[in-house]
Measured scan of single mutants.
Amino acid sequence: VTLFVALYDYEAITEDDLSFHKGEKFQILNSSEGDWWEARSLTTGETGYIPSNYVAPVD
């Protein structure tokens, strides 16, 4: 499982989006939707859509 880490803070715009803070880690559930990925936060356990350009793979 490839994990991703937030590079910036993000505040949800719609109820389907997931708010997060810089440094938060995610498991990507679906990355086939283009620039918005469905993800689960490993910090909160919540799922929602995140902007793919706000995250990077964890080394």
Rank of each mutant, 00 (worst) to 15 (best):
V1W: 10
V1S: 14
V1C: 15
V1M: 12
T2S: 11
T2P: 14
T2Q: 14
T2K: 12
L3Q: 08
L3M: 10
L3T: 10
L3N: 06
L3S: 06
L3Y: 12
L3E: 10
L3H: 10
F4D: 00
F4G: 05
F4K: 03
F4L: 04
F4M: 09
F4V: 13
F4P: 01
V5H: 05
V5Q: 08
V5Y: 13
V5A: 05
V5L: 06
V5I: 13
V5N: 03
A6M: 01
A6Y: 01
A6C: 02
A6S: 05
A6D: 01
A6R: 00
A6K: 00
A6H: 00
L7P: 00
L7W: 03
L7H: 03
L7Q: 04
L7N: 03
L7G: 02
L7M: 08
L7A: 03
L7F: 04
Y8W: 13
Y8C: 13
Y8H: 08
Y8N: 07
Y8D: 07
Y8G: 05
Y8A: 09
Y8T: 06
D9S: 08
D9E: 07
D9K: 04
D9I: 02
D9N: 07
D9F: 04
Y10V: 02
Y10L: 03
Y10N: 03
Y10H: 06
Y10G: 02
Y10R: 05
E11M: 10
E11C: 13
E11G: 05
A12F: 02
A12L: 01
A12V: 02
A12D: 02
A12M: 03
A12T: 04
A12E: 02
A12S: 11
I13N: 10
I13F: 09
I13E: 13
I13D: 09
I13T: 14
I13K: 14
T14E: 11
T14G: 15
T14F: 15
T14Y: 15
T14C: 15
T14H: 15
T14K: 14
E15Q: 12
D16G: 15
D16A: 14
D16V: 14
D16S: 14
D16Y: 15
D16N: 15
D16M: 15
D17E: 15
D17S: 15
D17F: 15
D17P: 02
D17H: 15
D17R: 15
L18K: 02
L18P: 02
L18Q: 03
L18D: 00
S19D: 05
S19N: 06
S19C: 06
F20K: 00
F20N: 00
F20C: 03
F20L: 05
F20Y: 01
F20A: 02
F20R: 00
H21K: 15
H21G: 07
H21D: 06
H21F: 12
H21T: 13
H21I: 13
K22I: 09
K22G: 04
K22C: 08
K22D: 02
K22W: 05
K22Q: 09
G23S: 03
G23K: 02
G23W: 05
G23Q: 02
G23V: 00
G23Y: 05
G23P: 00
G23A: 03
G23L: 03
G23I: 00
E24K: 01
E24V: 03
E24D: 15
E24H: 06
E24N: 05
E24R: 01
E24W: 07
K25Y: 15
K25T: 11
K25M: 15
K25H: 13
K25W: 14
K25S: 06
K25V: 15
F26W: 01
F26K: 00
F26E: 00
F26I: 05
F26V: 03
F26N: 00
Q27T: 10
Q27N: 08
Q27C: 11
Q27L: 14
Q27Y: 14
Q27A: 09
Q27K: 08
I28Y: 03
I28K: 04
I28E: 01
I28C: 04
I28V: 10
I28F: 03
L29K: 05
L29R: 04
L29T: 07
L29F: 07
L29A: 05
L29P: 04
L29Q: 05
N30M: 07
N30S: 11
N30H: 08
N30A: 08
N30K: 09
N30D: 14
S31H: 11
S31G: 10
S31M: 14
S31F: 15
S31W: 12
S31D: 13
S32Y: 10
S32Q: 13
S32C: 12
S32L: 11
S32M: 13
S32E: 11
S32N: 11
E33S: 14
E33A: 14
E33F: 13
E33K: 15
E33N: 15
G34Q: 13
G34Y: 10
G34R: 12
G34A: 14
G34P: 15
G34I: 11
G34T: 14
D35W: 11
D35K: 10
D35F: 13
D35A: 11
D35G: 12
D35N: 10
D35V: 11
D35M: 13
D35C: 12
W36I: 08
W36E: 03
W36Q: 07
W36A: 05
W36N: 06
W36D: 03
W37N: 01
W37C: 04
W37P: 01
W37I: 07
W37R: 03
W37G: 00
E38Y: 15
E38L: 15
E38A: 08
E38P: 06
E38H: 14
E38I: 15
E38K: 10
E38S: 08
E38T: 11
A39L: 01
A39C: 05
A39W: 01
A39I: 03
A39D: 00
A39P: 00
R40M: 12
R40A: 05
R40S: 05
R40C: 08
R40T: 14
S41E: 03
S41D: 03
S41T: 03
S41P: 00
S41A: 07
S41M: 06
S41H: 07
L42S: 04
L42C: 11
L42Y: 06
L42F: 06
L42I: 10
L42T: 07
T43V: 11
T43E: 14
T43H: 13
T43Y: 09
T43L: 12
T44I: 01
T44C: 04
T44W: 03
T44E: 01
T44V: 01
T44G: 03
G45N: 09
G45T: 03
G45W: 07
G45P: 00
G45A: 05
G45H: 07
G45Q: 07
G45S: 05
E46V: 10
E46Y: 09
E46D: 10
E46H: 12
E46P: 00
E46T: 08
T47G: 03
T47E: 09
T47N: 05
T47H: 08
T47D: 04
T47C: 10
T47A: 07
T47V: 13
T47K: 09
T47Y: 08
G48D: 00
G48S: 01
G48E: 00
G48Y: 02
G48A: 02
G48I: 02
Y49G: 04
Y49I: 09
Y49R: 15
Y49C: 09
Y49N: 08
Y49M: 14
Y49P: 02
Y49W: 14
I50V: 09
I50L: 07
I50P: 00
I50Q: 00
I50G: 00
I50N: 00
P51M: 07
P51I: 03
P51G: 04
P51V: 02
P51C: 08
S52P: 08
S52Q: 06
S52M: 09
S52H: 08
S52A: 13
S52W: 08
N53M: 10
N53I: 10
N53D: 09
N53L: 09
N53Y: 10
N53G: 10
N53K: 14
Y54M: 11
Y54I: 06
Y54R: 07
Y54K: 08
Y54E: 01
Y54C: 08
Y54D: 02
Y54L: 13
Y54G: 06
Y54A: 13
Y54T: 05
V55E: 01
V55R: 00
A56P: 01
A56D: 05
P57D: 04
P57W: 06
P57M: 09
P57G: 05
P57H: 06
P57S: 07
P57C: 06
P57L: 08
V58L: 13
V58T: 07
V58Y: 13
V58E: 10
V58F: 12
V58C: 10
D59P: 12
D59L: 11
D59V: 14
D59G: 12
